[in-house]
Amino acid sequence: MDVTHILFGVFAVMAVVSAILMVTTRNIVHCAVFLITTLLATAGVFLLLQAEFLFVTQIILYVGGIMVLFVFVIMLVNLDVSLRQVQFNRQTWVAVLLAAVLGAQLFIALWLGRNALRLPARAELIAPKNTEAIGQVLFQRYMLPFEIASILLLVAMIGAVVMAKRRV
């Protein structure tokens, strides 16, 4: 039981608890804060696996970029109205059934693999140049999928701009 295990426990509990709180809280700004906490805790787990580039990218992109935009949009919503609104869910039983099936599946999967249930070993230290290794894999080995994905995102971005720009 060294420091890494304790830290992993802290991050994991933080991520799960704030994910649950994110779903159950009614105030959506608080929801956003809990989602940020989840993302930060996940980033911490990346760091424990010595994937420091992923750790930083997670923080810069998700927490520093995407979540800022989320919060930006959320703040424009009139909170008083959304707090008073009754949430409509007429599918309680379907949801319970689905959750039970999924939960059972997860439990069985965990139970079957209970002997392998330990912390993943630290990623092999690729010299100290973790970032460079990721760059090489992305731009040499997986060049084509990477470029296809980026073109897809570019198309989506342009589409969004065009649709937003159209004067109604």
Partner: peptide, 25 residues
Amino acid sequence: DLNIGLLFILAVSSLGIYGIVLGGW
């Protein structure tokens, strides 16, 4: 001396925006 030093500084200082955004809200 982190080997991702610059990215780390950028990432952490960009989190400071939440101080402003949440404080304002």
